[in-house]
Design a protein around this nucleic acid. Structure first.
Lengths: 335, 335
DNA sequence: TTGAAAGCGGTACCAC
DNA sequence: GTGGTACCGCTTTCAA
C-alpha cells in the first residue's frame, strides 16, 4: 500500500540529469540527442514510469476531462447518447466525469459545481424539468467552460445544443394516425417544463389543426401520474377514441395495458404510436409503432460540437436539430 | 473565454495577508481569529472563489475520483449497478470516471491505464471475457490502487469482489423446472471464459445430477451466435424438450421467438426460465420467469467495500456473494 | 544539448 | 494568530 510512484525526478536522479531533460525526452519535443532519448525512454519503461496526469493538468490548465450530466440511465435512450459521446471522447483521449441528476434541481446544481471544481474542459448536459432556475448553467457559461446541451433545450440559455426535431417527429406521427383513419386522437403528454414535452404536444396540435380537426383539451392526458388509469378510462368511456399518440414508449405501454384490460383491439379499434423506440417497443406484442430518435448521433454530434468549441477556443454557438424516423409496427394500421 | 479563476493568492493579495492564512480560514482548521475567518469567507464568496480540485489532489495525493469500468450500458443490469454505486459515491463526495470496455480486452487495458494515470483513489471493474490476460488488473494491484471486481470473478486475481451466487440461482431455477415436471431441459449457455457462464452452467448440471437426471452434451447450446436458430431447431426436432434454462433473458427471448415460429405452447409444452430480470421479461407475453439479481445492491456493496479499503488503508480482501431470487411468471408452470 | 529555476494552486510545517 | 516557505510532479523559459 501507499507505494510511491516513480516520478520524473526519480528518473533524473538515476541518470544524473535534470528533470527537464527527462521531460523533453519523454515528450518528444525540444532538442535532445537521440542517444539520450533512447536511454531515457528505455529507463522509463523499465521503471514503469507513468506521467502524473494531475500534475500535467495543473501546469497545462487543462484536464482532458469532460463533465457529462444525464438524468439517469434506465432509459435506453440515454445509454445510446452515452455511447455516442464515448465514441468521440474515446478517440480524442478525453475522459468522462459522469453525474446523474435524477431530474433533481439540487443534484443538477451540485454536479455543475463539481464539474467546475474539477476543472473539466467542457460540459455536456441534459437540462432537467425545472427550467425556472438556470443559474447553475449560467455559472458554467460565465466561468467560460464550454457547455453543450443535449436532448432538451433551454430557451433562456444562450449556448450550443443538439436536439431532435420533436415537433416534426410528432407531427408526422399524428399525421400518420389521421391518414390511417383516426379521427379522435388522444395525446399523452410528458412532464411539464421540458422542451420535449412542449414540442411533442405542439406537433400533435398542429397536425390536428392542419387537418381541420378540432383540438380538445380533454384529449390531452398527463402520463406518469397516479390518476392516469382513471383519467384514461374516463375519456375512453365518453369518447370514441381511435388513436393515441404518446410522449414516450413507456406511456404508450401503459395505455396498451389499460386497453388490454378493456379488451380493445389494437390497432383495429385504436391505433397507438409511442416515442423514442425503446427496446420494449419490439418486445411487446403487437410491436409498438414509434418515433425513433437518433440517440447515438445526438451524443456523437454533441461531443463533436463540444470539441470544436474547446479546440478552436471559439465563442460560437452551434446548434443542431436531428431528424426522427417514424417506425411503423403492429400498433398502427396501414394507410 | 480563458477567464482566469480567482486563486487563494489573489484573495491573499487583496487582503494583504498570506496564502496560508486564506487556506486556514477556508478550511476551518488551524488557529485563526473569528474576525479574519468571517472577513475571508465573505471575500471568497464575493469573488466566487472555488478551490482548485486539481491542486488539492496534487498536494493531498488523493483525487476523490473512482474509476468505473463496465462492459456497456445497454443491459439494464449494468445501469442498476451504476445506480447502486452512485448512491454511495455521491454521498461520499467522490466522482466517477467511467469507461466502457465493450468486452474488449484492448479497451479494458487502456481504461486501467487511464485510471492509474488519473490517479483515481480506487477502481471498480467488471472483468471481460478473455481472462487469459489479466496483466492490466495485476498492474492496478501492484500499483497499490484498491480494486473491487463486480459481477464476474477472476480466479487468478487476488482482490476483493462482489458477485451474485450464480450457481445457487441457476440450481434453483433448474430445480424448479424439474419440480414442475420438465425432464428434458436445455441450457443455453453464455460467453466462454466469464465466471458467470461457468457458474450458471454448473448450477444446471448439478441440479440435473442431484435429481438423477442424465447430463447430455447436446442439450447445452451456445447462445448469441449465428447458428443458434439452426442448432436449437435441430435439438427440438430430435428430442422431446420440455424445459429451457437460459444464461440471460435475451437468450430466453430468442428461444421464445423460435418456439413461437414452431407454434410451441409456452409453458404448456415447454417451460422457460431466463436470467437477470431485465425489463423485457415483463414486457413480453407471456411474461418471462427469470432469476433476479440484486444489481443495485451489487453496485452499492462493491462501492462500500472499496471505500472501506480506501479509508482504512487496509490490504484486506473482502468478498461478497449476494443471493438471487427466482421470479416466476408466465413461461413456467406451477409445481 | 542540457541545466537551473519559476510556477501551476494549494497545504502544512516552522517561526515569530 | 499570522507569515514565510518548501513542496506535490510536471512543463517551460532562459542561460550556459
Amino acid at each position: 500500500m501507499e507505494k510511491k510512484r516513480v516520478s520524473i525526478r526519480d528518473l533524473a536522479a538515476i541518470l544524473g540529469v535534470t528533470p527537464s531533460t527527462i521531460s523533453r525526452a519523454l515528450n518528444g519535443q525540444g532538442n535532445i540527442s537521440e542517444k539520450r532519448r533512447e536511454q531515457i525512454t528505455k529507463l522509463a519503461k523499465e521503471h514503469g514510469y507513468r506521467p502524473n496526469h494531475i500534475a500535467k493538468s495543473m501546469v497545462a490548465n487543462k484536464t482532458f476531462n469532460i463533465g457529462l450530466l444525464l438524468p439517469e440511465f434506465t432509459h435506453n435512450y440515454f445509454n445510446k447518447i452515452l455511447a455516442g459521446i464515448e465514441s468521440v471522447t474515446y478517440q480524442k483521449g478525453y475522459q468522462l466525469l459522469i453525474c446523474t441528476s435524477d431530474e433533481l434541481q439540487e443534484k443538477e446544481e451540485k454536479s455543475c459545481l463539481t464539474f467546475l471544481d474539477a476543472r473539466v474542459d467542457g460540459i455536456l448536459a441534459t437540462a432537467g424539468n425545472s427550467s425556472d432556475d438556470l443559474r447553475h448553467f449560467e455559472n458554467v457559461l460565465k466561468d467560460g467552460t464550454p457547455l453543450v446541451l443535449l436532448d432538451r433545450i433551454c430557451e433562456d440559455l444562450n449556448t450550443s445544443y443538439v436536439v431532435t426535431d420533436d415537433f416534426e417527429g410528432s407531427f408526422e406521427a399524428v399525421q400518420y394516425l389521421i391518414d390511417s383513419g383516426c379521427s379522435n386522437i388522444l395525446h399523452i403528454k410528458g412532464p411539464d417544463y421540458i422542451s420535449t414535452s412542449f414540442n411533442r404536444k405542439l406537433g400533435y396540435t398542429e397536425a390536428l389543426k392542419k387537418n381541420g380537426m378540432e383540438y380538445r383539451e380533454e384529449f390531452v392526458l398527463k402520463g406518469d401520474q397516479k390518476a392516469f388509469e382513471k383519467d384514461l378510462n374516463a375519456v375512453l368511456d365518453k369518447h370514441p377514441i381511435d388513436g393515441v399518440f404518446a410522449f414516450s414508449d413507456y406511456y404508450a405501454y401503459d395505455v396498451i395495458q389499460i386497453l388490454n384490460h378493456r379488451a380493445v383491439k389494437i390497432p383495429d379499434e385504436i391505433s397507438i404510436i409511442g416515442y423514442a423506440d425503446e427496446p420494449l417497443a419490439q418486445y411487446i406484442s403487437p410491436q409498438l409503432s414509434t418515433v425513433k430518435q437518433p440517440a447515438y448521433e445526438i451524443g456523437k454530434h454533441a461531443a463533436e460540437i463540444l470539441f470544436k468549441i474547446i479546440e478552436e477556443k471559439t465563442d460560437e454557438i452551434i446548434t443542431k436539430q436531428l431528424k426522427t424516423t417514424l417506425v411503423l409496427r403492429g400498433t398502427t394500421k396501414g394507410t
